[in-house]
Design a protein around this nucleic acid. Structure first.
Lengths: 335, 335
DNA sequence: CCATGAAAGCGAAACGTTTCGGATTTGAAT
DNA sequence: ATTCAAATCCGAAACGTTTCGCTTTCATGG
């Protein structure tokens, strides 16, 4: 494999000159041609490893996520990766299988690989797995979930979950529903709390008192959504359900199908987060959408800014959700 | 950031000794303790960049795929990544957006990053984008699609698509169907040809003559499946449809829903590839499944073998599909 | 034709490892 | 104590870049 030295020998120029040209410096026209010719002839490509060692910048971003098989996260990564790659950065992905120990290990692994930045949708609640990164001066971007202890030290891109949940529940209330169930994520998780807050806020704001029985906790898995739905369907008076993530939406639908619950006649349903699914389900599902593309773009932007410029300004973005109307919400006339 | 030199100074030992110990060599007990202590005290971690430069092995595998938002591919990557990371390898993912030019660029990018191996689900038909990798002696593993020109030079992990398609179509024939539509991928793509072959084989083997009108080509997108289904539904006599990938299965269902086609009463349907979907759709969908986990495992295995051992033996695996029974296939009694 | 300043070119050191081959230490046997 | 092989240790070079501080070359105007 050809090195810069080979180019130097081939062209009769000095190492420094070649390097300078390769990095955008100017050289005399005839030398430029000579270098180009030699590069072509020898099939030279810069050895990023050596470059990285010398510059102590690996041009690599590490990504740590609970799981790859999750449209939320893959869409964001795709978008971010696209932009980063155009800027010469590569993305190393670590799937920690929703396990805090593996998450910690992944961060350690990435730091050892000398990544320039870390994107994390955190599993751990306390965020200690990121301390070493921060100590090392590696910028961290948190998505989806905030960790209070790290406020001001890490960048974050969140979604206004409370508003999103509130909008969904308000939509149900406007349609005449009074007894609205909600299937939340695990207790203690950031997004669970936010979405719960939105639910409660919409209820009280409309003069309804949230009944704890109508609030069930799942674990953001298909299974959890399934069980949550079974539990809710036993409650008398229930006419609508709001499910707070994609996987649980799937589970809830499975449960509904099993019990032949007609949507929206018998039950109104608002799901979360997957456009494609919302179309294929009959009836078309009304869902809360998150701005995935924007999140990915924002993440890429933050990294580029933090690494290219020397602006150590901490960004804390909160983006808005949308409500995509389908046919899964039925109207109840007031008695 | 602490280096090996700091450890040497701290312990009074030589560079070579520390390096040796760090790489699993034996040192005197008291030195071992001294090194451990110094490592802890200074928070030393090996600089993989420097190590890679010296050993000219980056311990990184590059992955080039048409798109990340695709359960087929993410499941495989997850599995492979899991195994590779446990062995100290990281995975760089490049999503080429189903664009051959971007795919070529991604390979170039990865080679510049000095990856030790490349996993590719190819978009390009001729595979020239991989030539530079092969020249550089970087092992390549192809998944899902074979490129004949590269046979014997690249590893491959394929699925017996012909058999899988044949099994699905046979299942329909056994249920009494005679006029069976199939929605294939784009013409000229490897898997399209394989699945078409399976379809034809099952038909002729059962004494039926395949009618070209019942064979439509899509492009492996939701839209393509939708259009294909609309076209098929205009054909008189059609009683069953086999859709040959996940995205198109979604599209086909949307089309069916729009026209209120009852499944399986009016039309029997066999889809492809997504377990979760098959459960959530009502009625439960019968699908052809691919052994995603095994593919991921096999890929990791091939890389580890090729990189750790010096066994340059080319592997060409062909795995079997399964048929997951749902309720979307109805029986037609012979007239 | 010379002086001059700017532009371009250069050698050498450094980044943090690994590794080679020789030097030193160890500890058991004499 | 002495010897000796085995075990351990070590200095130095090398991996392929970038970069610093000089030196050389060039074009221009006088």
């Amino acid at each position: 494999m050809a090195t810069i030295k080979d180019i130097a020998r081939e062209t009769g120029l000095g190492l420094a000159t070649i390097s300078k040209y390769l990095n955008g410096g100017t050289v005399r026209e005839k030398n430029r041609l000579a270098i180009e010719a030699a590069v072509d002839k020898l099939g030279y490509t810069v050895n990023e490893l050596a470059r990285s060692l010398k510059t102590s910048r690996s041009r690599t971003i590490g990504v740590v996520i609970p799981e790859l098989g999750n449209a939320f996260v893959t869409t964001i990564i795709t978008e971010m990766e696209d932009i980063l790659r155009k800027n010469g950065y590569s993305v190393i992905v670590c799937d920690c299988r929703t396990d805090a120990a593996q998450e910690r290990e992944a961060v350690r692994f990435l730091l050892q690989k000398r990544v320039d930045g870390i994107l994390n949708m955190p599993v751990s609640r306390d965020g200690t797995h990121l301390d070493s990164a921060l100590e090392a001066g590696v910028p961290v971007v948190l998505i989806d979930r905030m960790i209070d202890r790290l406020a001001g030290k890490v960048h974050s891109i969140l979604v206004d979950n409370a508003a999103g949940a509130s909008a969904a529940v308000s939509r149900l209330i406007d349609a005449g529903h009074r007894h609205i169930g909600v299937i939340l994520g695990p207790q203690g998780v950031f997004t669970t709390a936010q979405r719960h807050l939105g639910y409660s806020r919409a209820m009280t704001r409309n003069g309804l008192t949230p009944d704890a029985a109508f609030v069930v906790y799942g674990d953001y898995t298909v299974q959890g959504g399934y069980e949550g739905m079974r539990r809710l369907l036993e409650l008398p008076g229930l006419t609508a359900v709001f499910v707070t993530n994609y996987e649980m939406t799937l589970g809830a639908i499975i449960a509904g199908n099993e019990l032949s619950v007609k949507i929206p006649e018998r039950l109104s349903l608002i799901g979360f987060d997957n456009l494609q699914l919302s179309q294929v389900i009959q009836p078309r599902l009304t869902i809360v959408t998150q701005p995935l593309k924007e999140i990915g773009e924002a993440a890429a932007g933050i990294f580029l800014e933090a690494l290219e410029a020397d602006a150590p300004e901490i960004r804390e973005l909160v983006l808005n959700t949308g409500l995509l109307e389908g046919d899964s919400v039925g109207t109840i006339s007031e008695p």
